[in-house]
Amino acid sequence: MIRVLIADDEPLIRAGIRMILTSADDIEVVAEAPDGREAVELARRHRVDVALVDIQMPVMDGLTALAELGRTAPEVRVLVLTTFGQRENVLRALRDGGAGFLLKDSAPGELIGAVRAAAAGNAYLSPAATRHVVDSFASAPAEERGEEARARVAALGERERAVLALLGEGLSNADAGRRLHMSEATVKTYVSRILAKLGCGNRVQAALIARDAGLGR
């Protein structure tokens, strides 16, 4: 059973998300929080697997809560709830270790799928917004950021760079395996190795490095 926390200062939003998630037989909403500080406390107390955290909350905002969970409860996978008007915040969340993001008005199936993906250790990038956000960020990369990314990627072998390029495209392990004629298990091994070499906490961070380095473009 996937244990989930919902953090949003709007009671109706929390109720709607709870209703959607509890319709899945493998997801249990174990806690709700109206602000980031309480979200961090409850996530640790209830040992949640996935936390859905709104960016704009009182007391402690979602980005600060994400960073705090990364320090004190790194096992908690954080999905950031957002709107189209928060691109810069989303990019910061991804770079700070968020497991991905999705829009508040995402379809029920997408919301459930995002929680399952995060719980499985995969990044979830909302099809409705993520590619546009990441592409807009990578289309004119700062020279310093690009140089740093290329230097980090230089430590990878040829096959590892090929896998990393597909992470940058948002492919799952299964899809990357089909593209590269590898088994899903082999791709998973490569991904773990890539994250370790790049010093990344998750696939999203690695994907952004791939885009900054110009892989797959």
Score class of each variant (00 low, 15 high):
11 P>G: 04
17 I>M: 15
20 I>G: 11
26 D>V: 11
26 D>W: 07
26 D>C: 02
44 R>Y: 13
47 R>S: 14
50 V>H: 04
51 A>I: 05
52 L>I: 13
56 Q>S: 15
56 Q>K: 12
57 M>G: 00
58 P>M: 10
58 P>E: 10
60 M>Y: 05
64 T>L: 00
65 A>R: 01
73 A>N: 05
73 A>H: 12
74 P>G: 12
77 R>Q: 08
78 V>S: 00
78 V>N: 03
94 L>I: 03
103 L>N: 02
103 L>C: 10
105 D>Q: 08
109 G>K: 15
128 A>H: 06
130 T>E: 06
130 T>D: 06
135 D>V: 14
136 S>N: 12
139 S>C: 13
146 G>S: 10
146 G>M: 13
147 E>P: 07
150 R>P: 06
152 R>P: 08
155 A>M: 08
166 L>G: 05
169 E>P: 03
170 G>C: 07
177 G>H: 10
179 R>L: 07
182 M>L: 11
184 E>L: 01
186 T>N: 06
188 K>V: 13
190 Y>N: 04
191 V>M: 11
194 I>W: 02
195 L>F: 09
196 A>K: 15
197 K>Q: 08
203 R>D: 02
204 V>H: 01
204 V>F: 03
208 L>W: 00
210 A>N: 06
211 R>T: 02
211 R>F: 02
211 R>V: 03
212 D>E: 15
